[in-house]
Design a protein around this nucleic acid. Structure first.
Length: 574
RNA sequence: GCGCCCGUAGCUCAGCUGGAGAGAGCACCGGAUUUCUAAUCCGGCGGUCGCAGGUUCGAGUCCUGCCGGGCGCGCCA
């Protein structure tokens, strides 16, 4: 809550007089529905209930009691609402001054002592980095940066899919259809090709799966055998190949500990479950039954062929991370198709009675759907079917599109290639973070490459325009010193969304929902675009020009900060 | 079949713990540039909030049923 809001709250509580704590907590200030009403509004329903009076009456009494002061310009009752208007100078000074002085929430918040672990991206090795991996990667990276900004200690972990029965299959595939030369030439494509071929041939020949199971068993034996050496080679090649996409996306991890990292920790995890007395034998496998928690499907922790399964590794990871980081929250940015898996994991922890059960959160998200050209319907990408779209292809296409636009609109731009890369890549990132994460993303080339309206380039363009103005004002001071904020009385449409930056960050964090921030960025960009049309900066008289420059600097800074949290670059020229 | 999620304008989506005439972008139509980047701005067109009940002073938001779509449902991850 901003100082403006807390000042207002204090006055409201004082004016209302002698309220119980729960009623005070229920006094929520919200942005006014319409700027014509005021800046912020208080709804009087809860207060009216407490008083036993009609809301309208409570509202008018409250409005009458709240006389203007240095911050508050007016309080007016409109039906059951009281609408407040801040003094323009106070609003501008708080917002613009706060931003230019890097005060929280515009600058980083002080450390909270909270520790958050974010498990994200986690691609399966030996498969190309495709669009399906993008969501977890960009949402997870955004949440990491968001929580850091809010003062938490964050551990971003890439829980690579580098272990499991799938590698038995990959080995069978490579040993049967692969070639060393091809593997060296284009490792990811080759691994993908032999894997796809395996998928087809295994349908006709069940013997392949038996062969694969044996490879996996030998891999898990712990011996330094053919399987282990091959696995290591495929893993190294994959890690190398993943560096590309991560670099382009600007994503980094604090820990790259894939599933294989827990190879020697699974036995201990399993032992803890057994000691808790909840591990049962069932059909040759070892499972934890979860019916008592309303989950019909038991959680399998040891398969009947005595090999491990991903639940075992996830459990081992939870114990390891808990002991190592002592996390308060562990966020798993994983697609919603794994919902049951995480419910089961938490279920096992609950039955064990360990506190980690309350600290695990599955941050689920929808799939990326492709439009079927023939039927016009939206369908899931099928990795094995071969219609998977590689991330690099998408990024390249976006960058090429930006290059075309630059050639047309700003042909003299310096560093054209670098800017095109930044704008193109971040258009894709922004597009992914734009919608509620739970909804499926419809992968639509046309929409994604349209940089008009609600898009990354739209926001970036605002930054570039603002930067251009500041550049031309060059020698002038850009801090808040000596600014007469009364001159920004006409900037309320920009100032009010800027005031929402803090609440938006809080809400984005509380809901693990980057789209809250994306939406605010679009709003701020839109308002500043509109403001610049009717309010010239450089041509204004000196005192006004000085104030508007401060506003321009502030808006640019907030956009840059917000985009930075989202993982979107904000070049000063484009 | 069972469980979970989604269903708001032609398309893609917002709508913050239920609260002030249901908003935006795209598309379409019409305007704005002697001046700070027109990747912009301004205006217009466009909605039985899937359907039917219910709770409430008040429901796009909560509950129940139905319809449509998606995902999941024991040894893949």
């Amino acid at each position: 809550m901003s100082e403006l809001h807390s000042h207002l709250r204090t006055r409201i509580v004082a004016a209302a007089g002698g309220l119980p704590l729960d009623v005070v907590a229920g006094l929520v200030l919200q942005p006014a529905k319409d700027p014509a009403f005021g800046d912020v509004a208080l709804q009087c329903f809860a207060l009216a209930k407490h008083r036993g009076q009609p809301p309208q009456q409570v509202a008018s009494a409250l409005a009458a009691a709240l006389t203007p002061d240095a911050v508050l310009e007016s309080a007016t009752a409109t039906g059951p609402f009281v609408n407040f208007r801040f003094r323009r100078a106070a609003l501008a000074e708080h917002v613009v001054g706060g931003i230019l002085h890097d005060r929280a929430p515009y600058g980083p918040m002080p450390p909270t002592g909270q520790c958050i672990v974010v498990d994200f991206s986690s691609p399966n090795i030996a498969k190309p980095f495709h669009m399906g991996h993008l969501r977890s990667t960009v949402i997870g990276a955004a949440l990491c940066r968001l929580h850091r900004h809010l003062g938490a200690t964050v551990h971003g972990i890439n829980h690579l899919g580098d272990w499991g029965a799938q590698f038995g299959k990959l080995m069978t595939a490579f040993l049967r259809y692969g070639s060393d030369a091809e593997l060296e030439r284009d490792p990811m494509r080759h691994m993908f090709e032999v894997y796809v071929r395996y998928g087809k041939e295994a349908k006709a020949d069940p013997g392949l799966d038996a062969e694969s199971a044996e490879h996996y068993r030998r891999l898990e034996s712990g011996e330094d055998n053919l399987e282990r050496r091959l696995w290591k080679r495929l893993r190294d090649l994959s890690l190398k190949a993943f560096e590309g996409p991560y670099r382009r996306l600007g994503v980094t991890f604090d820990h790259v500990t894939g599933e294989s990292f827990y190879e020697d920790k699974m036995a201990g995890a399993l032992a803890r479950v057994r000691e808790a007395g909840i591990l049962e034998e069932s059909e040759g496998a070892e499972v934890v039954r979860l019916e008592s928690l309303g989950i019909k499907e038991p959680c399998i922790l040891r398969k009947s062929d005595d090999t491990s399964i991903y639940a075992t590794r996830d459990l081992a990871a939870i114990f390891y991370r808990s002991a190592t980081f002592r996390f308060d929250r562990a966020l798993y940015v994983v697609g919603s198709e794994q919902k049951l898996h995480f419910r089961q994991l938490v279920g096992v922890l609950k039955r064990m009675g360990v506190p980690e059960a309350e600290r695990i959160e599955h941050i689920d998200f929808g799939l990326i759907l492709a439009k079927n050209a023939e039927t016009g319907k939206w369908e899931k990408f099928a990795t094995r079917g071969g219609n998977a779209i590689f991330l690099d292809e998408v990024l390249d296409e976006a960058v090429a599109n930006v290059r075309r636009i630059i050639a047309e609109k700003n042909p003299d731009l310096e560093d054209r290639d670098a800017v095109a890369e930044q704008v193109g890549v971040s258009a894709i990132v922004f597009n992914d973070l734009k919608n509620s994460r739970i909804k499926d993303v419809k992968f639509d080339w046309e929409a994604m490459l349209n940089f008009e309206g609600e898009s990354g380039p739209y926001v970036q363009y605002a930054v570039a325009r603002l930067a251009g103005i500041l550049r031309k004002a060059d020698a002038e001071v850009r801090g808040a010193e000596g600014v007469d904020f009364a001159h920004l009385a006409d900037a309320e449409r920009v100032l009010l969304p800027l005031l929402e930056f803090g609440p938006a960050l809080q809400r984005a964090a509380a809901q693990s929902e980057p789209s809250v921030l994306t939406g605010l960025m679009i709003t701020i960009a839109g308002e500043i675009h509109a403001y610049l049309r009717d309010h010239h900066v450089l041509g204004a008289e000196p005192a006004v020009r000085r104030s508007r420059l401060a506003l321009v600097a502030a808006a640019r800074k907030v956009l840059k900060t917000g985009l930075g949290i989202l993982g979107v670059a904000a070049p000063d020229r484009m």
